[in-house]
Design a protein around this nucleic acid. Structure first.
Lengths: 233, 233
DNA sequence: CAGTGGTCTAGACCACGGA
DNA sequence: CCGTGGTCTAGACCACTGG
C-alpha cells in the first residue's frame, strides 16, 4: 500500500497530465465530482489537491464555470511586471549553448555526482522589444544530452514545457533567491547599459517530483521599467 | 447578518488577538475542538482559518502538540537571509522623523485624502553589526500623530507591533515589489559603499483589516552577503 | 434551469507527542 | 494512555455561470 496522503497522489497524477498534453492550456478540467469518481476518492480530497495546484499557479478556479489550466507560462514564469502592473511574455534570443564541467555552485545546486557534466545556455530576453534580462541556464548533461547539439535558433522560448515534452522531466516547483548585482561587461553589452549598472539577480532552482533539482538559472534583470512581485498580484 | 464567510470572520478575530497580547508568542492556542466550540462553528471551519494564518506565517502547527503563535517577527519581517541560509534579527538606528505633505507616490500608496500629511522615518538597519539597509517609512499623520513627536532614540526596532499596541492598528498583510537600484549619495554614506553601487530595493505596503494601506516602506539593501527569499525556505 | 465551485457540517480513523 | 493535529468521507446548502 501507498502510505502518502491521497491528495498528494492525486496531485502527482494531475501534475503529470498538466505537464504533458493531456489537457490544453485554458481548457477546463472535469468537474470535482467527476474527478472524485475517476480517482475513487471523495470530492473533498480532490478539492485539496486542486487547491494546492491553484496555489502553485497551475490551475485557476472560476465559480460556476469550472477549473481551468492556467494559460501561458505553465509554471508561473518570471514574476516581472511593468510599473503599471501589466505583464508581458518575454521573447528570448539564445546566445550560446555549451557543455562544461560544472562549477562548485552548479554541482551543489543540481546535486550532481562528481565527473558529471552540465549544459550551459545563455540567453537575452526581451520585454516590450527591449533587451531586459541576461540569463544563464544550467542543466545536467546526462538528463538533457540531446539538447547540447541543438542550434541556438531552435531552443524554444519557454523551456519548462520542453523539458517535459522532449525529455520526460516535468518541472513542478521552484525556489528563488534575489539579490542586486552590478552588470558585467557581457551583460552591459547585451542590455545596452553601462558596466556596473544595477541589475536584479534572480537565482532560481527548478525541481521535478520528489524535490529533485533539474535546472539552475541566473537571470539578471534591468528593472528600470519593471518590478518583481511574488506572489503575482 | 454578516455575509462574509465564517472562516474569514474567525480569522479576523484571531488576527486581532494575535496582534494584541491575548496570546504570548510561543504559546499554544486552544485546540481546534475548543475553538470550534467557542466560535460556534465546526472544526473544519476553524481548520480553514488556522491554515490561512499558518500560511501567513503567524501560526505554526505541531502534530500531537498543538498550534502555536510564531516566535519573533510576528509578521515575517524582512525575508533576508545570509548566504549560508541563516537569518538575523536586524538592529536599527533611526536617523530622522519628519512631518511632510505627501508626494504623489505616497498619497497613492496610502490612499490619503488631499490635504492630509504624512510622517516620514528614515533608518539604517544593521545585519551582523554592519549597516546593510537604508529604509524610508511613510505613514499617515492622522493615524500616528503621536509618533511625530517621538525622539528618534525611542522608536522601537520592530514597528508593526508598535502600531498595534500604541495606536490600535494591526498589520495583517503586505505587498512587496522588488527592483535593483543605484545607491544615492545619502545611502552610500550610511552603508559605506560607493555612489551608484547596486542595491536591492524592496517597496512594501502594509495593510490592516479590509485591505486598508497603513504603511509604505522603501528598503534599500546591500546584498553582498545576503539574499532575499519569499517564501522563507 | 442545471451544473459548477464555495462554504460548512459531522463524524470517522490515523500518526504523533507527552505524561 | 489521552489529546493533539492530519487525513478522508458524505452530504448539505449557497452563489455564480451558462444556456
Amino acid at each position: 500500500m501507498e502510505k502518502r496522503p491521497l491528495y498528494e497522489q492525486v496531485k502527482e497524477t494531475l501534475l503529470a497530465r498538466l505537464a504533458g498534453d493531456y489537457w490544453r492550456p485554458g481548457a477546463l478540467l472535469p468537474s470535482e465530482p467527476k474527478l472524485a469518481g475517476e480517482f475513487g476518492v471523495s470530492q473533498g480530497t480532490i478539492r485539496r489537491a486542486l487547491d494546492d495546484l491553484v496555489s502553485q499557479g497551475l490551475l485557476a478556479r472560476y465559480q460556476g464555470r469550472g477549473t481551468a489550466v492556467t494559460e501561458h507560462t505553465p509554471f508561473g514564469f518570471f514574476h516581472l511586471f511593468r510599473e503599471d502592473g501589466t505583464r508581458e511574455l518575454p521573447e528570448s534570443k539564445t546566445l550560446r549553448i555549451s557543455v562544461n564541467p560544472p562549477s562548485r555552485a552548479e554541482r551543489d545546486a543540481l546535486e550532481l555526482a562528481s565527473g558529471k557534466k552540465v549544459i550551459r545556455i545563455q540567453r537575452v530576453r526581451y520585454l516590450n522589444l527591449e533587451p531586459k534580462i541576461f540569463e544563464t541556464i544550467c542543466i545536467s548533461h546526462d538528463l538533457f544530452s540531446g539538447l547540447a547539439k541543438m542550434a541556438t535558433r531552435d531552443l524554444p522560448n519557454t523551456v519548462y514545457n520542453y523539458y517535459e515534452q522532449k525529455f520526460g522531466v516535468p518541472i513542478v516547483g521552484k525556489r528563488e533567491r534575489l539579490r542586486a548585482a552590478a552588470a558585467t561587461q557581457d551583460e552591459a553589452r547585451y542590455l545596452h547599459i553601462e558596466i556596473g549598472a544595477p541589475l536584479l539577480e534572480i537565482e532560481c532552482i527548478a525541481y521535478s517530483h520528489r524535490s529533485q533539482p533539474i535546472e539552475w538559472r541566473i537571470s539578471r534583470c534591468l528593472t528600470d521599467e519593471h518590478y518583481y512581485c511574488n506572489p503575482p498580484e
